[in-house]
Structures are given as C-alpha cells and as structure tokens.
Design a protein around this nucleic acid. Structure first.
Lengths: 207, 207
DNA sequence: CAATAAAATTTCCTATAGGAAACATAAAGT
DNA sequence: ACTTTATGTTTCCTATAGGAAATTTTATTG
C-alpha cells in the first residue's frame, strides 16, 4: 500500500573542490545548522549544551562571524560531534551517491568445507566494508589448520544457531542469536557451530 | 589445544565510557609548531605562506590566543595540511588484539521519535565501524525534517518487518527480511517501516 | 666574549568574535 | 483578529584575535 511520494527536500551536494586559488569553500555554518536540525535542537538548547550564546550560534550558522577554535571545541563537545568529521569534506572513496540492493539469497556464494559465505554487495568496488552472511559448518576448532588472520576489524552478529568464537589470546566465547562481537582481525580467529545444525551469522569486515 | 566443547568463560564488558568529561586537551599549538619544524620553516616563512602575521603564528603556537576558523583555514591551506588530519587525535586505531562482546539487548539504547538505536560495541573507541540494531518507528517520509547525511558508507540488513529505504537521487526501495543495502552515506537517506509494527534492522556505518 | 644576524616573543593598536538584551518573526492558543 | 509563546536575528558593548613594529632571546661569526 502506501506511497505516493512525498516531495523530497532538495539540498544540493556541493561538489567540493572549488578553484584552487581561493581558500576552502567549506560551509561550516550550513553544516552546523544541518547537524543541529538533525538533532532537533533549538538555538537555545544548543546554547545550553555548548555554553555559547544563542546569538553567537546564530551568527556562526549564518556565516556572519568566524568562530574561534575554542568556540568550535565547545560546539563539538556539546553536540557530541568530533572535529575531524566536522571539517572533513563531504567526499567518499566510494563514488558518491551510489547504492546497491541484495535480495535475500541473491548474494554470490563461496562454499568451503567449514563455511559457506554469501557475499552481499559485490557490485560496488572500493567500498570500506565487506558484508557477508555465513553458514557455519565447522563443528570444532580442529577444523581449522591455523588461525584466520588479516588486516582490519570485524563485526559479527549471530542470526541463527549457537556459535563459539575462538580468538587468540582469549578463551573461546559462546554466542546466541542476537549477540554480537567486535574484534581486531589481526588477532587470529575462527568460528564453529555449537549445535547440531549449521549456524548463520552476519559478518562485516572493514579494512 | 582444543577440546571440542570449549568452556565458555564470560568476557567482562568494560562499561566505562566516561572518558572526556572535561573539554578536549587537544594541543593545537604544539601540533602546529611540530609541523612547522618538520617542514624546516621559520615563522617568517610560514607567515608568507599562510598570509598570517609572524606574531599571530607565534601566539597561536604558544596557545596565547585561540585562532579563528578563517585563520585555521589559511594555516591549513598555506602549509598544505588538511584540517581533519590536523584535529585528528594522534592515537592509533583500535588497540591491537582487542575484542568485545555485546549480549542481545545489552547495547546502549538511543531512542528518538523515529528510531530506537541500540549501539552494539560502544566500549571500543576509535573503531572503523559502528554497528547498531535499530527499531524503525518512522512510518512515512514526512517523519523526517530533512535527509540524514554524513561522512562514510552504510550497510543495512533487514532483520524483521518490511521497510522502505528512501535515498536522494533514487526512488525509495522496499526491503524484506534478509535483504540488504550498501550505500554512500553522504547521499541523503531515511528508513521507514511499511508494516503495522516496527521493523528491526542491523546497521553498520564505516567512516 | 663581544658584535652581529636571525628567529621568536611581546607590545600596542585596530578589527572582529562573543555575550546580553532588544527586536523580529513564526507558531499556537484564546 | 489579538495575545501569548517559542525560535531566530540584530543591536550594542566588551573581550579578544590579528597585524605592524619594537623588544627580547637565540644562534652565528669575528
């Protein structure tokens, strides 16, 4: 049912690099106003959180003044945004404005003896994360010849079944559906199913 | 090693997030002085490159004044350092060999009118990904004041219910349990539940 | 150790950021 | 409509950032 489509608010993405000669075209004011609106805050509330005056905030957002660094610090701290992110250009490694859908069961499958990985977003190259759904066939730690170990970090969420995550330096830990783990992938790791049937987990790797 | 059935010790969750009650002790001045020295520049030379007065640079480096944002821009532009990097904490990423468990339902909850986010691995600071499980309360696009838009990329997997992902530049797309999306987060986006009840999704953000 | 040169700091003044309150505008209630 | 209430803007004034030149400190050379 549903949807007629509501008209969507338009807001153009500034393409970033202007002509090199002049200084940054970074619109700090607009950026801050957007953040504040996303948080559903009024100037008064933001003022209380940051310790800056309403008027000052207004002027900063309207780019009538250039805030001092201490002001920026108060802003970032009060609104809980980190400064690098605030100044980062709205650019991404992934070609801007892309998206990809993977319907259930339609990822590309990579079966091994211990796991069956279903890669979920293969179409997009150069992305920061690699997500896949994995059927865990391994039943004991001996199923591995050695630790799996690679650059980056991993996030793991159990979807079905019961698993044990073996990691170097730690005792193995058992996980139920809904439990999640986050760990450094340089640390050796391996996953086994504890129940009769295969377990199903979501895995996301960031390099 | 290895028994087949590992004992399952509990891993303590370091709940203390309390770091940083006071304001950032970020030493911008020292930082800049280091950079300038690394470039073998005198204040005079730096002055010419940046367009700021010698005296001003001196005061900034000695933290006698708090530079305005425009001054910081001139600095960054003139010395060819990018601003996010300037403010980024000199700390490495995740401390090597760490891991953290989040039991089901034990993440930190952040309810809003449209979403209820359950952050899954808050204990580890400075990690590459931010995973959270979200209950989607929004029922129509009008529930949003504006697009959500931020640095990075997002992966999304539907756990329960039926949702529609609205993204800038594209038509909204409907997703069933098991379906997943991967998209650029700079592109405005918003998620609504299509069925009667709230939907449940897993979200992972990489910056 | 002088004497000189070079670099960094401090002084003084002007330009501007930041705060309090007045003003303006918008939304909601009567 | 009028009044009230909330939110954003502008006005003024004070505090402070930024620039030019004087002063101090640090390095270099005879």
């Amino acid at each position: 049912m549903s949807d007629e489509q509501p008209d969507m608010p338009e807001l153009k993405i500034e393409s970033g690099s202007g002509a090199g000669a002049t200084v940054e075209p970074l619109q700090l004011g607009k950026r801050l106003r957007q953040i504040r609106h996303n948080m559903n805050l009024t100037l008064e509330e933001a003022s209380q959180k940051t310790g800056l005056a309403r008027s000052t905030l207004s002027k900063i957002e309207n780019e009538q003044i250039s805030p001092t660094f201490t002001a920026v610090q108060k802003l970032a701290h009060g609104l809980d945004i980190d400064i690098p992110q605030l100044f980062a250009k709205p650019k991404s490694s992934m070609t801007s404005g892309r998206r990809v859908l993977t319907k259930v069961g339609e990822g590309t499958s990579h079966p091994t003896s211990t796991y069956e990985h279903e890669l979920l977003s293969t179409e997009l190259a150069r992305k920061k994360m690699i997500p896949f759904k994995t059927r865990v066939r391994a039943r004991s730690f001996e199923d591995f010849s050695d630790w799996v170990r690679h650059e980056g970090e991993e996030f793991l969420l159990v979807l079905e079944g019961e698993v044990a995550l073996y990691t170097e330096f730690y005792e193995p830990i058992s996980l139920q559906p809904g439990d999640s783990m986050y760990y450094d992938a340089n640390m050796g790791h391996g996953l086994v199913s504890l129940s009769e049937r295969d377990a199903l987990v979501l895995w996301v790797v960031a390099r």
